[in-house]
Write a protein that binds this DNA or RNA. Sequence first.
DNA 1: GCCAACGTTGGC
DNA 2: GCCAACGTTGGC
Length: 159
Amino acid sequence: MNTEKKYWLFKTEPGTFGWDHLKLLKNKKTHWEGVRNYQARNNMQAMKKGELGFFYHSVVRPPLIMGIVQVVKEFYPDFFAFDKDSKYYDIRSTPENPRWFMVDVKLYREFSHPITREELKSHSALANMTLLKRGTRLSVMNVTPKEFKFICKLRDVEI
DNA sequence: GCCAACGTTGGC
DNA sequence: GCCAACGTTGGC
């Protein structure tokens, strides 16, 4: 059995929910609701409690990694999909047969200053990073341990 | 089951 | 604001 820790990246638009929103929450913890893509969902399914992921701001200039979050609750049904008043409502997902799921994450570490996409691109060690590939639209993706540790080192963060 | 049309994402 | 790339939808 492969018990090696995996690493992740959570993409979000700071206008909707960003690092500053996370910091204001009780225990700096949130549901990662609203994922409506199967591949991203499957990535969340693979997450184990305690694993770490980057918190990435997209659709802003420049795009940034703000810091690190930790998975504090594993994969469970996204109840926002059951709520008619939620923008994440989906009639095809029911409590009996849920289609969409989420995890809970908590702020783990804030980078002394955010890492821009430009900075990531400047390192050949990250040349194959999924995030940097053209056309990647996944909102929840895997980061290799090598890449993850390399990026943490850019800000002298020990994990 | 194919695939064109469409809507969305997201960097630039 | 542009537009390439992608995922989803739906007619056949």
